[in-house]
Amino acid sequence: MISEELLEILACPKCHTKIEYREPDKLRCPNCKVVYPIVDGIPVMLIEEAKPDEE
């Protein structure tokens, strides 16, 4: 759904740390310990939409 190349360049909008892909539909910032959702194939990279990471 999301290209490898997009995963390569996506960063946390808050701290700019490279995000990590968590199957099937989450993008995790290891620094802020939050996840951004992928909704219907589009990453939602908004700080206010981030959820605390439960890992």
Partner: peptide, 8 residues
């Protein structure tokens, strides 16, 4: 989906 002022 993102904000021009906070680019991801």
């Amino acid at each position: 989906i993102g904000d021009a002022v906070r680019l991801p």
